[in-house]
């Protein structure tokens, strides 16, 4: 069943690639090119079933975005996946501590992404 998914990444390539994979699987996709833009659309009323965010993004990175999402009452428990090139285990633990749900390393293949989504989003 299609879900509402917000993708956050400062790379147009990643946004288009992820959008293609997710829309093909029947999900409704919104995107934001920065952490600040993502926070803005979420505060504007967007209620996604899942947030997928990059780690390294300009001023507001993925960790901070996770923290901001967890502060929003209506989004406190939605899954947030970090999709990044970052490979340091310490960064993963930092993301976990901030409240991220999972960690995927770029490039992400469709099967892997969709399988994780089915695991973390009920009914997906």
């Amino acid at each position: 069943m299609g879900k509402k998914i917000l993708i956050v990444d400062d790379s147009p390539t990643i946004l288009m690639s992820m959008r293609g994979m997710l829309e093909r699987a029947g999900h409704a996709v919104s995107d934001a090119a920065s952490g600040e833009a993502a926070v803005s659309v979420l505060k504007g009323g967007l209620k996604p079933d899942l947030v997928i965010t990059d780690f390294h993004m300009g001023a507001m990175d993925g960790i901070e975005l996770v923290r901001q999402v967890r502060k929003m009452a209506s989004l406190r428990f939605i899954p947030v996946l970090m999709v990044t090139t970052e490979s340091q285990q310490a960064k993963r633990m930092e993301a976990k501590a901030a409240g991220a749900t999972g960690w995927l390393v770029k490039p992400v293949q469709p099967e892997a992404l969709l399988q994780v989504i089915r695991q973390v989003v009920p009914g997906a």
């Binding site: 990444d9 390539t13 990643i14 093909r24 090139t85 770029k106 992400v108 293949q109 469709p110 992404l113």
Partner: peptide, 16 residues
Amino acid sequence: IMALIGSIQFQDITRQ
């Protein structure tokens, strides 16, 4: 085709 759409993410890696 879908795998290719995923693989194009290499560009972001190269960019970094």
